[in-house]
């Protein structure tokens, strides 16, 4: 399904916007206003590409890298929400909102959430739905046993699920080339009896295309697909963790830029010009500026929490 002109501009808006929000959040971390962020800079086009391909009733399990961009691209999660959530003043993009696009929480152990994604696809099949589950994880997480078990299970039952590996070349300090002896991740798919596709994760249109095909295949009952989106991680693993790459390598990582790639593509098609792009950017900048101002002005208001009762703890812990 080709995107029409309006959708393409919307895609650019989402990509440029989530890039700017991510940039701002990363900067606020560097300044010490916020802390501990796993920057998604460099991963935006994956989130946006898949975000435009899925249906609102498809269940997406987002990663710690491209999740915010994906939530924004799916709709209902504004740039303002993205910034304010960092200040604890808006729900996280992982949260399922009332009437919002369908998502399911991930957990803090990488790879651990992938089997449950398979279970969600099994439940949807059981109930006769035509929805697809999309689950994101990194090249590092891909080496966890649970991920292999999950993909194998999905293969045996031809489940409606798409596995998206965000291959940014590193797991903290471990280069992908040392974490797997194989050339790529997509070829693992053969071992699970499903197709594997490698795509340039900086190219939102290419990601959209691959995701659309994988979703259609799953929806038609023809089984899962493993998508490997290759990108670069622009920032250190997380704020406060030293990056072992040299300054040159860090600069090189930024050469492939998803926002610029989409912009150039749309300009070439005559859908966008510099003035229109600048106008979009001005709106984005204003929304983010206002959110930052609001976030920072109310940040220190939180009081010392009163001791919690066992009853309150139980109510939070058990259904």
């Amino acid at each position: 399904m080709a995107l029409n002109e309006e959708q393409l501009i919307a895609m650019y808006r989402a990509l440029a916007g989530s890039r700017s929000a991510e940039h701002e959040i990363t900067e606020l971390n560097k300044q010490g206003v916020l802390s501990g962020h796993h920057s998604g800079l460099g991963h935006e086009a994956i989130g946006v590409g898949v975000g435009f391909a899925v249906r609102p009733d498809d269940c997406v399990q987002m990663s710690h890298r491209s999740g915010m961009m994906l939530a924004h691209a799916r709709g209902g999660y504004s740039l303002s929400d993205a910034v304010l959530s960092q200040f604890g003043q808006a729900p996280s993009h992982y949260a399922q909102t009332e009437g919002g696009p369908r998502t399911c929480s991930i957990v803090g152990l990488v790879g651990t959430w992938v089997p449950m994604s398979v279970g969600i696809a099994m439940a949807d099949r059981f109930r006769g739905k035509d929805t697809v589950t999309v689950t994101f994880f990194g090249d590092g997480a891909a080496n966890e046993g649970a991920v292999h078990e999950a993909m194998n299970l999905a293969g045996t039952r031809r489940l409606p699920i798409v596995f998206v590996i965000e291959n940014n070349g590193f797991a903290v300090s471990m280069p992908t080339s040392e974490a797997t002896a194989a050339e790529d991740f997509a070829s693992r798919a053969a071992g699970y009896g499903m197709p594997g596709v490698t795509v340039d994760g900086h190219d939102a249109l290419a990601v959209y295309e691959v995701a659309t095909q994988a979703l259609a295949r799953a929806r038609a009952g023809r089984g899962p697909t493993l998508v490997e989106a290759v990108i670069t991680r622009w920032e250190p693993h997380a704020q406060g963790i030293a990056d072992l790459r040299s300054a040159e390598e860090m600069a090189e990582a930024r050469i492939r830029d998803g926002a610029q790639i989409l912009r150039a593509a749309l300009i070439e098609r005559g859908l966008l010009d510099e003035a229109a792009a600048a106008a979009i950017q001005a709106q984005i900048d204003e929304e983010i500026r206002a959110a930052c101002e609001q976030g920072q002005s109310t940040k220190h208001a939180s009081a010392e929490p009163a001791p919690m009762t066992p009853e309150a703890a139980a109510a939070l812990t058990y259904a």
Partner: peptide, 18 residues
């Protein structure tokens, strides 16, 4: 600690053995 998962942020102080 209270019988619950460890909460994030400052909320943890409401649940820990102080």
């Amino acid at each position: 600690a209270l019988d619950m998962p460890v909460p994030p942020g400052s909320m943890v102080r409401a649940t820990m053995p102080t």
